[in-house]
Design a protein around this nucleic acid. Structure first.
Lengths: 215, 215
DNA sequence: TAGATTGTTAATCGATTAACAATC
DNA sequence: TAGATTGTTAATCGATTAACAATC
């Protein structure tokens, strides 16, 4: 399945393929060619074939790709359905929304615990969980060995807690904080979600379009 | 200031420069060289100089860059501090968190209204706003002419409401839904935040690291 | 078999990095 | 002036696109 090192650009497109294939599957489509899929997704057919062939030949000449097979292959490649253990740090607005809004289980994760240091939030119900005191976080990690940590805490708190998490075997961070984990840790997967940066980018692009218009 | 067309890769780095410069400014740093900044940010000095020179020569040979000046230049380039009008569609967990968590005003936006179609949410207070009925959305748009719409609604709802928003002059979408706006509209800025895709990518990368370890 | 479409190699394009002359 | 560091051009690298032989 895996073929050496696949570039991050390719990997980042996989979840999107996965989504489109799921829709096709739900719509009852049995087969699709790279050409048809490219039209639906706004990519080139070449890129789709190139991307998929990083992982193996899933198609059939003259026919295209079987939607269900390809969907399941990509699920496997992504490693969804592994039930890794996740913990969430920070039960503020964003943290609570992430806990309630995301479908963790369909993406190979189980949310095992929600932690915060604010006494006012202790015991607060968030979905089927109760917010726990960060004071117990290290003991929890020792006992349960979570695989990934979701950081919905301020920059300084993230910086302070990260070494402990790494020491206890955390393998990935889903990082909503402004702390630059990538710079300090090696061999650990970090996915940054910088919402503020995204909004700033939108601001730039709206201005750019407006300027182009008035010229 | 603007120098023709700047690539999206460069633009996406600007908010990050902006953040680091703000930190330097708060720390009282007066000047910084591309070399020092590159070490802090994990980039090459070359790239920093290349990026900045898309917009003009902000440095001084033999000295480097003045932190405050550069910070303000980038603010200007991004167009922060313009007070554009934003509306938020979808007052679910994610929508409410975005409304409460983001600092819109420091990024050139003013959140003018929050809309939802769920009767149970009507009038609910979210920060200093109350959730309004989507039934009144078109009239609101006609009257207030919002610049951007934040979509925290399901795919089908996004698809249904987008044409109306575009008709009333929306210039940008901050899109948290799975609807692919980019495919249907031209000349409108779309920033997608696909949280699910990001989580799936993390899943892949954690697996990849683990496999590499066991080899 | 003929038509369609893949898998894969080669060509192109764009982005990053290196190098260095200009200059503060 | 000498040292430092930019702005900018040239070289490298990687990603995307095009082309086509293989083959279902």
């Amino acid at each position: 399945m895996a073929k050496g090192n696949v570039s991050l650009s390719v990997i980042r497109r996989l979840p999107r393929y996965h989504r489109f294939l799921k829709d096709l599957l739900n719509a009852g489509t049995v087969r699709i060619s790279s050409g048809d899929l490219s039209a639906k997704m706004g990519l080139t057919a070449s890129q789709i074939r190139q991307d998929l062939n990083c992982f193996g030949g899933f198609g059939q000449q003259g026919y295209g790709y079987n939607v269900r097979d390809l969907y399941e292959e990509i699920s496997k490649i992504l490693g969804l359905g592994k039930h890794r253990k996740a913990i969430l740090l920070g039960a503020g607005n964003l943290g609570r929304a992430i806990a309630l809004h995301m479908d963790f289980s369909s993406r190979g994760f189980e949310l095992m615990g929600i932690f915060d240091s604010n006494p006012a939030l202790m015991g607060l119900a968030v979905g089927d969980q109760a917010v726990q005191d960060s004071a117990g976080l290290e003991a929890f990690c020792k006992l349960h060995r979570p695989d990934i940590a979701i950081l919905c805490i301020p920059k300084e708190a993230a910086k302070a807690v990260a070494p402990m998490l790494v020491r206890h075997g955390i393998r990935g961070f889903w990082n909503f904080s402004h702390y630059d984990l990538t710079l300090d840790y090696d061999g650990i997967a970090v996915e940054n979600v910088h919402l503020g940066d995204s909004l700033s980018t939108l601001c730039f692009r709206v201005n750019e379009l407006e300027q182009a218009e008035s010229e």
